[in-house]
Design a protein around this nucleic acid. Sequence first.
DNA 1: TATTGTTATTTGGTCGTACCATAACAGCGC
DNA 2: GCGCTGTTATGGTACGACCAAATAACAATA
Lengths: 256, 256
Amino acid sequence: MKSTIQFAPVTMGRASEEVALQIEAAILDGKIEPGDRLPSERELQLHFNTSRGVIREALQALKQKSLIEIKKGAKGGAYVREVEVSTAGESLALFIKRQPLDPQHLIEFRESLDRTITLLAISRGAEEEKIELLAKAKILETMLRQSDPDMVVLAELDRELNIMLARMTHNPIFEWIMQALQLGFSSSDVTLYQGEQYRKETGENWKNTAQAIADNEPLRALSHISYHYAMLLKLLDAVESTTDGNQKGLTGKRKD
Amino acid sequence: MKSTIQFAPVTMGRASEEVALQIEAAILDGKIEPGDRLPSERELQLHFNTSRGVIREALQALKQKSLIEIKKGAKGGAYVREVEVSTAGESLALFIKRQPLDPQHLIEFRESLDRTITLLAISRGAEEEKIELLAKAKILETMLRQSDPDMVVLAELDRELNIMLARMTHNPIFEWIMQALQLGFSSSDVTLYQGEQYRKETGENWKNTAQAIADNEPLRALSHISYHYAMLLKLLDAVESTTDGNQKGLTGKRKD
DNA sequence: TATTGTTATTTGGTCGTACCATAACAGCGC
DNA sequence: GCGCTGTTATGGTACGACCAAATAACAATA
C-alpha cells in the first residue's frame, strides 16, 4: 500500500543489523502496524540495495525479538506481530534457565510476590474472578488427592492458578512477571509434585488461600501463603541434605 | 577443546531453527560453557550437513538471544556469552516501548517492590552497605538542592541507589528485577526530575529512607517510601490533567 | 634483542544465482 | 458448485565466490 516508507540504502558495518534497526524503528514508530505485511525478501533486497542473505538475517533477528512473524507460500512474508505479554517473558525465562538460582532466593522472591499479588487481588479482583479462582483451586486439590495424578495437567493447573491470581491485580506488570516466572520454572516445578506430602498440603493451601481471597480476608490469605512457603523451605532442606548438595535444587540441571 | 560434542545432522522443517535449538540446548546443558568458542561456520556447515546460510541464520538467532557473541577474523567465531542481567532487561525495555504501560501500574509495582526490598535490606544488609547507601543518598539530596543539576548524573545516581538497595537484599533476583526496571524506564524517569518540587522531596525522601534503613527502623523506612510514591501519584495526576491525557505519562512516547 | 613492517591464514560478512517446498489462487472439467 | 490441477508468489536451502578484518607468523630493520 504505502511506498512512502523510506529505507536508506546500506553500505557500512554489519549491513544486516542496519536493516534490522531500520525496520524495527519503522515498527516502533508505528509506521508499520501490527498485522501489516512488509515487502517480500526480494523486494527488500532491492529497497536496501543489498543481498537477500542480509535481508534474511535481519528478518531472522526481528523474528527472534517477536516483532514479526514469517509465513511461507504466496501471500506469505513478514507480518508485524501484535504485542503479547508472553513475548517479553521468554527472554527472562531464558535468563533464569541459564543462571542457576539458589532455590531459597527463588522461594523468597516468589513469596514476596505472592503476598503482594494476593493483597491486590483481594482489593481489586472482581467477585466472579474470586469465585473462579476458588473453583479452580478446588479442582486442583481434588486432583492432588488422587494417588496417581497426571503431573503435566497438575503443573498446568498450578500455573493457571498463579497467573489468574496475578491477573486479578488488574496490573499487567504482575501478570508479566508471573508469566515469566512460570515459563522459567515450569519444568522444575514438576519435580516437587512428586512428593506426596507436598502435593497434599499444597492442594489444601491453594484451596484455603483461594477461600480466604474469596472471603476478602487478607490476613488469613497471607497466613496460608506463609505456611506454604515455609513448608516448601522445609522440604527443600530435606532434599538438599539427602542428595548431599551436588544439585542446585529447583533450578538445577538434570543429567540426561 | 572437546570434539566430543555431537551435532545431529538436520533434514526437516526450518533447518536453521533446528540448528539453533541444538546449539542452544548444548549451551543450556552446560556442554559448552561461557567463554568457549564453537566451531567456525564452515565447520558447523559440515557437522550439520547443511548450507552456510542456515548456520548463519541460526547463529544470528542465538546472538539475538544474547547466548553467543560473534567476532570476526582469525580466532574469531561464535563465543558463548556470560550471563548478564542487562540481557533480560533489554526485552523488557522493548516490551515497554511497544506496550505503553499505565504509569499508575508501574508505580504500584515499583512501590511494592521497594517495600519488600527495603525490609530485606534492613534485615540482611551489612552495616557498611547501609552506611554507603546513606552516604550516596545524601549526595543525591545535595545535588538535587542545586538550582540547575545535571539531569543525566542525577538519573544515574538514582539508578545506582535503587540497585544498591536491591543488592542489599543479598538475593540476586531482586537485583535483576530492579536492573531490568531501571533499564526499561530510565529514559522516562528523567523527565520527572524536571519538576522542581519533585526533585526536592525526592532527595529528602531518599535521605530519610536511607537513614531509616541505617537505623534499622523498617516502619519508618516504609513510611517514607509510601510518602514518596503517594507524591509521585499526585504529581502524575497533575501532569495528566494538564496535558489532557493524550500522552501516556511515564512511559509515553515523545515526538521527535 | 627488540621493534616494526609485511605477508599469510583464518573467519565472519556479503553477494548472486539457482533450485526446492509450500501456500494461496486461478482455471478447468465434471 | 465441487474438486482437481497447474500457476505463481514467497520463504527456505544450497553452492560458490569474493571481500574485510583480526590474528599469527615471519622477515626486515634499528
